[in-house]
């Protein structure tokens, strides 16, 4: 140790000091990066920079990144290019990336990626247009989203024999839109279940609640089915539709089906099929807040 410790230097305090300084360095570094990019992309600095070629190139880099983030924020579906590292990759390794942004709980999540390649470029029997058809190469979409079905619908493989009996077409835009819709719906459903739990006073440390509910949890991979459990042993199944409406609700008690409990959960908002899940959330939250 080269630095002379002044008074009663206990090892833990020194370690604490080092880690505090480290974190300070990190936060200063990130502030510096933020200030740099803000300064470099500000219109007033751009006029001053015009003389220095190094700074202008830096500024151009930052400006293009700013534009990219703007598109990512607003369009939420963006494309980019990737090089496949595999030396034997089809189409000399060119890969088209599709980036899907998802917002959940007022935050951007890590985007989902779909990477597409062109495996049919070297098939002589195909028409020039068909040689450029795309195929899903890699993706990070979770297994509970029907990516395969969407790809089979909108990105079918060309008929290798060359006889176009069925007029098939690829439509990347429809594929991307369809996939994005599924992803967003999935996250919306996940969020709704979390909201339901919160409204019913469940979750972390949540104890008493007026509704008598003890558990609300997703019952399948797609989070379309939600299982509901009451204190007194009644169990229910709630089926959520694509637009967040409650399609079906069944509550089973000790003596068979309990229609009363189902109506109570929906709170006189109407029959299943017309009520939206958010309304149930609001009602449960109101009930617990009032009690």
């Amino acid at each position: 140790m080269s630095s002379p410790p002044p008074t009663s230097p206990q090892p833990p305090t020194l370690d604490d000091e080092i880690s505090a300084l480290q974190s300070k360095i990190n936060s200063l570094k990130s502030t510096l990066a933020l200030q740099t990019s803000t300064l470099l992309t500000a219109p007033s600095t751009l006029t001053l920079l015009s003389s220095d070629p190094k700074l202008t190139s830096q500024s151009a880099l930052h400006a293009s990144h700013l534009q990219q983030t703007l598109y990512r924020t607003c369009a939420t579906l963006t494309l980019f290019r990737v090089q496949d590292p595999d030396p034997n990759a089809v189409d000399a390794g060119s890969v088209l990336g599709l980036r899907i942004e998802v917002v959940s709980r007022a935050k951007f999540l890590r985007p989902y990626y779909v990477l597409l390649n062109r495996p049919w470029t070297s098939f002589p029997s195909l028409s020039p247009a068909q040689k450029k058809w795309l195929q899903v190469h890699r993706h990070t979409v979770p297994a509970c989203i029907p990516l395969g079905g969407l790809a089979a619908r909108y990105l079918p493989a060309p008929d290798k024999k060359g006889n176009n009996t069925k007029r098939r077409k690829q439509d990347l835009a429809k594929f991307a839109r369809g996939l994005r819709r599924e992803v967003v719906r999935y996250h919306a459903r996940l969020g709704t279940v979390a909201d339901l739990r919160k409204a019913a006073g469940l979750g972390r440390g949540g104890g008493g609640n007026e509704s008598g509910l003890v558990d609300i949890s997703p019952a399948d991979a797609e989070v379309k089915h939600v299982s509901v459990e009451w204190e007194d042993g009644r169990t229910g199944r709630l089926v959520m539709g694509d637009d967040g409406e409650i399609v079906k609700l069944v509550v089973v008690g000790e003596n068979g089906r309990d229609r009363e409990a189902g109506r109570e959960l929906l709170g006189g908002l109407g029959n299943a099929g017309m009520v939206r899940a958010e309304e149930v959330v609001k009602r449960l939250a109101g009930m617990n807040g009032g009690g």
């Binding site: 990019s37 890590r110 890699r138 979409v141 979770p142 297994a143």
Partner: peptide, 29 residues
């Protein structure tokens, strides 16, 4: 399983890593 890495193995796993923050609201290069 139910994670992102199902069809993004090997070098592609960088796209599936949830720890990487890549918010479009960050203007840092």
């Amino acid at each position: 399983g139910g994670t992102r890495g199902n069809a993004a193995g090997g070098g592609w796993s960088i796209y599936a890593d949830e720890k990487v923050k890549e918010s479009p609201l960050s203007t840092v290069l």
